[in-house]
Nucleic acid binder design. Structure first.
Lengths: 224, 224, 224, 224
DNA sequence: CATGAATGAGCTTTCATTCAT
DNA sequence: TATGAATGAAAGCTCATTCAT
């Protein structure tokens, strides 16, 4: 039954990943998940304990790999640089490029997980936020430090803000894109579809780097 | 009694706005809303017909004003330019600056609505997406055209993508910011808090413009 | 709908009282209760909030009357005694007799509530214990004091213990009696059935008084 | 492995005994039992067949010894009496004293089983009642006969009732005592704690004997 | 002999909505 | 105009039990 067990667990995780992406956490019922995975309704609670714990495991399984990969890439680049600062484009590619390239590999969830991640980053649920902060903490810290070294003339607070903006642009790009279509009728050609990660990636990285290296803002004089 | 009714309606909308922002649409119950507004449980269905219609009205009340204002600002700028293309910075400020300045006015929902909007743009519910597209359609079309004229050398598809990235960076900036805190320990000074819109605005606009005007991406040769 | 409401609430309480008596609290499901009361499954939570709160209300409705009656009877006897101690038999009848006579009145739940009470007094659930102690506190205190005055030569600790034993004998007498039938084949005549409260009452009171006035126990010398 | 199995069985019985005492039969889940015994969830069904059968075995293991002991004691007393009637105090001590002294021996379950027994005698479950009646039948019959002989002037029906009352007082005394505390603030001294069986025993026996030998009740004229 | 996996049935509670007044 | 009462449906979860290994 070893094989069956793995199957069941994985099938549940796969179904949950897809449904959470499509309908959100609160919008997805246990019945939908277990139906989607073709398992018994009680199987989720048997394997994961609760709906919330299932949600966490959905993320943990992907993020563990992703963030290890991000650290591996950063280590490699820093080794090659032999102490010299990295180029901003390297760092941005290490963090965000690694994320998008993950979506090209069906073994790591493909676009499904990518979109789920994008949507969840704006989800305010306390338990998700806490879990995310824990999973991301160390990686973000390392990349932040690399950016500080790469851009010594930019105030640290500014870099942190721009990291934040980059996260947002990326999340949004991978999350709802062709669903929301606020920007309608863009006569897009097939090769520009959201699913063509190889086309999205250079576009997004250009944008992110442009934003990261933009002239510093001029603040209005602080009042009172 | 006429007055009471208006109060009731507004109280419901205010409570719903806050709760949808904090917990999402699916995560918020009618009981929470009516309790929060100190009205009868049946009042929402009486005044709005259904939970979904309430959600739409929450957005309509703010977006109507916002998008009119955006059109007004764009009209004004185009009049002043007398047929000449606008500067990208003007257009970006007209669209995104108007949004953020809205949050400084409590009468228009303040940061609460801003965050609700930010998180809703990635919300997966079909009916919300449809409604949003409808509310935004005309405005986005006008600003898109203005950008096409302002950046004649940039391919239209590229501009549309970058508009998209800008939306994402902005949504994310206003949505979860100090909640998620993936980027911890950023020794932020009080004047850099998310609630200081006057500090966030120039930062965000700098970033957006940098991204909008970034060098065009180099694509890898398209495979097969 | 005033009338319907009262009906619904009361019907639920009646059904719950009977079912809790027959099957215990944990052994009774909400579905059984609402089916028994011919109301919607959600009605219990609408009217009482939870299964536990329903349980409390089942008791509160009867105990409020019972304990007020006990206090009224005690007040009356003490007034008539004009400061002199009451007879033990009066006190015992005031406390336990009032309880058993309650069962003769269908308006106060009849034997059903009596048996439920008997069974519940040995139930260890924290929330029931706490609630019971609260409902009973004042009454028990008053009767205890009356017994102290009536039996000045008996150590107070002994009286408290015997009060306890009397409670037990009574609870048990009214609880399972003809159900358990540990004492089988007692060739009992119809007029001695448990349902003939008028026959049970003098029997029980004789026993209780005999126990209350029994010679004091001789303790073995306390070791170590 | 033989030894392990015995351990497992006993550990399950011990855990079940404690949990049934604390939470009742319906209020205790198999998971709690198997967790408490640190055995596999399926172990109960493996060793006992079902939850109900486990409950029966919990009692059988103690009651077999208890009732044999009661019969042994009665046989001994009757041998010594050589045909003459026993004293009521002897009989009461043989039945109830043997029970309470059992609680002083941890090998026989101590107070835990005593309390479980006390609360179970008022338990409404049909299958438990039936089982109890079966386990107790023969013993009760013998003691009843002894009481008939010891108290020839008291009507048999009266003796049966009083046996019943004694059972109740005893059950209650050992079941909830310090838990329920309807009788609060009794400034009890440490040596009067419920756990001091050696102090409870003489008190209870005095009470029971007082009740057993009380004057016969005067019935109101039977109506209709 | 013992167990991890799995299941169908049932649990309490909450949901958005309706309706008579 | 506004509300308390009520409801059918569905939610997440726990239950005792079974079974292949």
């Amino acid at each position: 039954m070893e094989i069956r067990q793995v199957d069941t667990r994985e099938r549940i995780l796969d179904a949950a990943e897809r449904l959470f992406m499509e309908q959100g956490y609160d919008g997805t019922s246990m019945l939908q998940i277990t139906s989607g995975a073709a398992v018994n309704l009680a199987a989720v609670n048997y394997h994961f304990g609760s709906k919330g714990a299932l949600m966490q495991e959905v993320f943990r399984r992907r993020l563990a790999w992703l963030n290890e990969e991000r650290l591996r890439v950063l280590d490699e680049m820093e080794s090659a640089a032999a102490g010299k600062p990295l180029k901003p484009s390297q760092i941005v590619d290490g963090f965000f490029g690694t994320l998008l390239r993950m979506a090209e590999n069906q073994q790591h969830g493909g676009v499904t997980f990518l979109r789920l991640l994008g949507r969840t980053l704006t989800d305010p649920s306390e338990f998700i936020r806490t879990f995310m902060a824990h999973e991301y903490g160390a990686v973000v810290e390392r990349y932040k430090e690399a950016l500080f070294k790469a851009l010594p003339d930019v105030p640290k607070a500014e870099i942190v803000w721009r990291f934040h903006f980059m996260l947002g642009a990326t999340s949004y790009a991978i999350a709802g894109t062709d669903g929301l279509r606020l920007v309608t009728d863009w006569q897009i050609e097939p090769e520009d579809s959201i699913d063509r990660i190889d086309r999205l990636l250079p576009r997004l990285l250009s944008f992110l780097l442009g934003g990261l290296r933009a002239p510093l803002p001029q603040f209005a004089p602080i009042e009172h």
